[in-house]
């Protein structure tokens, strides 16, 4: 379950960046994308783990991709039928779940070696981390870009929207500053640890 936060796929491992930037201009889109990816990740981890002894080692990547592509096709058809608006807004990015390196890396690194139960738990953790990352990005971008959350106005009419946050550059800026925040937090924490160890043992200075 470390995938949820400590090894968050987007912020810590830099996986699945394309969808994380492309569809997060509003919270609703982020949520839909997150749920779709979550479903694909869990189902393919389950299947890969079940068939891990049957899949020959040489063609394993191709087999994983085929399994993932099958589930993405299912998700795409379901979304087209149930939520046509969001399906239209996400467009071709639904198909791009297939090449989301986060999913493939979980199959290769975990699901193909572990029993079914653990594979599913791991997939759920990583998938959940992905949803959280998308929601953070979507929340920040929608809040600043249009002054609303899920379409509900938050700041009142006097707020001048930062249109740039909903446009492509905003995606780069948002993730850049989130990573900056993480880095500065880690920096502060490690310097505090350093100071404490210095206080205990002054000889360590060198």
């Amino acid at each position: 379950m470390r995938g949820v936060w400590r090894e968050n796929p987007v912020f810590r491992q830099a996986l699945g960046l394309c969808p994380a930037l492309a569809v997060t201009s509003t919270v609703a889109n982020s949520l839909a994308m997150g749920i779709a990816t979550f479903f694909v990740l869990i189902s393919s981890s389950l299947l890969v783990s079940v068939f891990k002894r049957i899949i020959p080692h040489e063609v394993r990547i191709a087999s994983y991709v085929l399994i993932i592509a099958t589930f993405v096709t299912i998700v795409e058809m379901v979304m087209a039928a149930v939520v046509p608006d969001i399906h239209k807004a996400l467009g071709a990015y639904i198909y791009l779940i297939v090449v989301n390196c986060m999913i493939l890396s979980r199959q290769e690194a975990f699901a193909s070696r572990q029993p079914v139960g653990r594979a599913v738990v791991d997939a759920a953790g990583t998938g959940f981390g992905f949803v959280i990352a998308l929601l953070m990005m979507g929340g920040i971008r929608e809040l600043l870009g249009s002054g609303a959350l899920l379409g509900v106005n938050v700041f009142g009419p006097s707020f001048e929207p930062w249109v740039i946050m909903s446009l492509p550059p905003g995606g780069f800026f948002t993730i850049g500053f989130i990573l900056l925040g993480f880095a500065s937090y880690r920096h502060h924490r490690s310097s505090r640890v350093m100071k404490r160890s210095l206080a205990l043992d002054p000889q360590k200075v060198t």
Binding site: P168, P169, G176, F177, L179, L180, S184
Partner: peptide, 17 residues
Amino acid sequence: IAKGAALVFIIAGILSL
């Protein structure tokens, strides 16, 4: 703290602008 991915993303944002 800005070295690495964070800086690359912010530069990419400016390029994108």
